[in-house]
């Protein structure tokens, strides 16, 4: 399979996500302790960090599943916390969220999984239009033949692809990926990395990719941010971040390298 590096046009004068001084705790557990982040239009940003550092918490705060204790999250020009239910829904339609374990609806087949967000949000679509949209996104993730199978019949990598397809059907402007390669073998991981880049190009998305997989961060991220103990230690290109002399970054690199 052809490997291509992100060469997408990135507009550094326009930010689609602006996070300022974000704090989040659960009871006495302080998870995020002052996060600042700008995601530029058209950019893929990879956020690296060990398990349990709060990567999922961060990404869930961006889409309003969790509320910040302090600080602001602005997405596509809207401050998430201040939105009414309807406004939040409108914003969410412009964001795709790929879950760590795909979160496919296991009572529905693949066709129904993909059609569900579409038919629930856009009234009066004809059967033909829905079929077409479903086929288009299945084509994008290369799983056209699985259309009438159940999620339980698919492999982990295929489920990830369908999860991504399900978000693409609403033509999002921003994609949020929660550990897209976790639990997958290296070859499948590599295919998912390619898919993430293809989505960026084909659908013109800006993306946040949460991962603890260095290869994934390197291949998909135009920039990489290193999350440690609730804060970003360093943000920059992959090379930039890992040329650092900081022992904590070095140890993360070594740890992953051995794995």
């Amino acid at each position: 399979m052809e490997i291509y590096k992100p060469q997408h046009t990135i507009n550094k004068s326009e930010s689609v996500i602006i996070i300022k001084d974000l704090y989040k705790s659960f009871g006495e557990l302080e998870v995020l302790k002052g996060i600042d982040l700008n995601v530029f239009k058209g950019e893929n940003i990879a956020i690296l960090g060990k398990s349990g550092t709060g990567k999922s918490v961060l990404i869930k705060t961006i889409i309003g599943l969790l509320k910040p204790d302090k600080g602001t999250v602005e997405v596509l020009g809207k401050e998430v916390e201040t939105l009414s239910g309807k406004e939040l829904d409108a914003l969410r339609l412009r964001i795709g969220f790929s879950f760590q374990n795909s979160a496919l609806y296991d009572s529905m087949n693949i066709y129904q999984n993909l059609a569900f967000p579409l038919t629930m949000n856009i009234k009066n679509l004809s059967k033909n239009e829905v079929d077409q949209a479903v086929e288009e996104v299945l084509e994008s993730v290369g799983l056209r033949d699985k259309i009438y199978q159940m999620p339980s019949d698919l492999s982990g990598g295929q489920r990830k692809r369908i999860g991504i397809a399900r978000t693409l059907i609403l033509k999002p402007e921003i994609m949020l990926y929660d550990e897209p390669t976790s639990g997958l073998d290296p070859i499948t991981s590599s295919e998912i990395n390619d898919l993430i880049n293809e989505v960026q190009q084909q659908y013109n998305t800006s993306s946040v990719i949460i991962t603890h997989d260095l290869t994934c961060a390197k291949k998909t991220g135009n920039r990489v941010a290193m999350l440690l103990e609730g804060k970003f230690l360093k943000i920059g290109t992959f090379e930039n971040v890992f040329e650092s002399d900081d022992d904590r970054i070095k140890s993360f690199f070594n740890y992953n390298f051995i794995q």
Partner: peptide, 25 residues
């Protein structure tokens, strides 16, 4: 059991982020 498994496998969150009200549905 059904809703519990939808909850722990994040299917309920998935509905919410697709702008579908999971409570209603």
């Amino acid at each position: 059991a059904e809703l519990g498994s939808m909850k722990v496998t994040e299917q309920i969150d998935a509905m919410e982020v697709s702008a579908i009200n999971p409570f209603k549905y």
